[in-house]
Design a protein around this nucleic acid. Sequence first.
DNA 1: GACCAGGCACATC
DNA 2: GATGTGCATGGT
Length: 211
Amino acid sequence: MNRNLSLIYRRLYSYFGPQHWWPAQSPFEVMVGAILTQNTSWVNVEKAIANLKKRNFLSPEMLYNLSNAKLAKIIKPAGYYNIKAKRLKNFLNFFIEHYQGDISKMASKDTESLRKELLEVNGIGPETADSILLYALKKPVFVVDAYTNRVLLRHGLIKEGAGYDKIQKLFTRRLKKNTKFFNEYHALLVKLGKEFCLKKKPRCSICPVKS
DNA sequence: GACCAGGCACATC
DNA sequence: GATGTGCATGGT
């Protein structure tokens, strides 16, 4: 397994090169983007983030004090805007009340307990929590997503219905726990999905073959 | 017009 | 524990 996953990584990296993730100007922008991109294409998230920036709302204090209704209107292009406004506010309440909106305070907490805290916030699930840990706080945590699932399934490395934690352990148990490596690996899987997946194209080389 | 996108919570069985 | 459903925009 270790060798398979290492091989996949090497081939992706030599084909696509470094991905320079996460595409954001600050750790806080990563956190916001991680929530906005839930089941949503990144181009739509970019529009929502551009709206926030245009109005100078992209800071913990500004978002914390914004009403749900106003926030929903601003992030509309990202879809699910009512529920995402709530989720963002839930996260902001947590971030301000527990860490005073201070990234470095949050980053100084040990990774395991911080992950648990994040998962207790309504609207933050495993992928969003891990994206925040890896891409905003630079913790060596592997992010699993829909593309990861498809690629591993296609290559027979997992069974259908494998859960998040199980897939994540494939990566974290045997591979080196390195932030830069996990950063690049997840980004490359997404790149692969965006370029070649899949459902859209008649002969997807990534999705499981349907009999 | 159908299908999809860098999930998650909640209801129901 | 597994399965189903709502949430919603914008691109292909």
